[in-house]
Design a protein around this nucleic acid. Sequence first.
DNA 1: CACGTATAAAATGTATACATTTTTAAAATT
DNA 2: AATTTTAAAAATGTATACATTTTATACGTG
Lengths: 217, 217
Amino acid sequence: MSKQQAQILYNQIKLDIQENKLPIGQALKQEMLSQRYNISRIPIRDVLQRLKNEGWLTTCGKRGVMIPMLNATEAEDLYLMRKYLEPLILEYAIPNINQQVIGKATDYLHIIDSQEELSIEEHGELNWQFHSCLYEQANRPTLFSTIASLHQLCGRYIGYHNQQLNYLKTSQQDHYNILKAIENKNTEHAKNLLETHISDAGKTLVRFLLAESKNEN
Amino acid sequence: MSKQQAQILYNQIKLDIQENKLPIGQALKQEMLSQRYNISRIPIRDVLQRLKNEGWLTTCGKRGVMIPMLNATEAEDLYLMRKYLEPLILEYAIPNINQQVIGKATDYLHIIDSQEELSIEEHGELNWQFHSCLYEQANRPTLFSTIASLHQLCGRYIGYHNQQLNYLKTSQQDHYNILKAIENKNTEHAKNLLETHISDAGKTLVRFLLAESKNEN
DNA sequence: CACGTATAAAATGTATACATTTTTAAAATT
DNA sequence: AATTTTAAAAATGTATACATTTTATACGTG
């Protein structure tokens, strides 16, 4: 289970970034992290590199990495890409979505509905489970992994504001509508609903980030 | 220059993958690579992980990585994503593209025209320089880096067939047309030309990959 | 003979130690 | 006083050594 050690570390650091438990905007010292997580620098380096490649960290000066500040332009880009790519993969998926898949997706929505005490991370995770169980039917690994990566990065922004949690809750009806359109094999309608769904979420988020940056000044 | 050591190794291994100098479809042993490139396993591991994250390598079984075989579906996905995302970033870029940028882009095209003896890697690199010097004017780092990453991955496919080199050459006229449309601030036309340009390249490549996989059977 | 189990070997993951580079601060020169 | 130089420190990159996990092989059992 040695590989899992690094895997746990990866998840832990990512969570700590998401929950703002690590300093933003300044260089992260390997030694410091090594002590904090009680592990040698080698796995730390591995994880830092991985997170850097995934966009959770950016280079800080000539050497080292740092946690980038939340940025409205980045958020807008992420949702913009999702808006274009997710309807695309859904189109490939729809012909392969049978009733079993519909059922599985419905179950995820029911879980979201039933559980009142979901943390924002849990909610985001269930949200992704719903979307991905549809997308994976497309059998498009490359397209899928790009979309999955964009989702992951959005997670950092979703975790930031409770307002986003409210949005997630109100958008549940969208999910049911999308599922209904898929069940009816109404591909164009499903794509349009999904595009609007993503676009709206993006707009809500960007509005918040802009408002916040105004407050800081 | 210790960091450059790993950087050199990264470029070298990537090139060796592109030129099929490493075994495809079987696990790459760290020890073997360590001896081949005359360096310890630590930087090897770093590079392997990085290449894995970028899509040049995939996991092979429970442990280790391997070079994935060229795959028509992956190529199609890459070009599909580019087809959607590159016109998008171009739209953001056009308002900021002044005559200096036009001139710079023109210079790249002239270099491609003038040099008869370009290797396919050099040609691909110049091709990317042309596109990226336009895209970077959009000031959209996140969108840009996703597109850059997709380009990189296409590099593996472009390097494979000389046929693709022929296509690159014939597509030079497209580049001039796109540049002309940008200069005239005819955004929609430029976007359409770019979309067709990418779509055609993708179709050519996919046709080849499919034909080849048929030949193998 | 097939199949599962145990054991040995190979490969990877991690820690420690060392080398190189980067950054910091102090000293010196203009 | 400001700027360049230089030396010490801090931080990162790499090598070696060790621990753990996989994988392969041989053995035993049904």
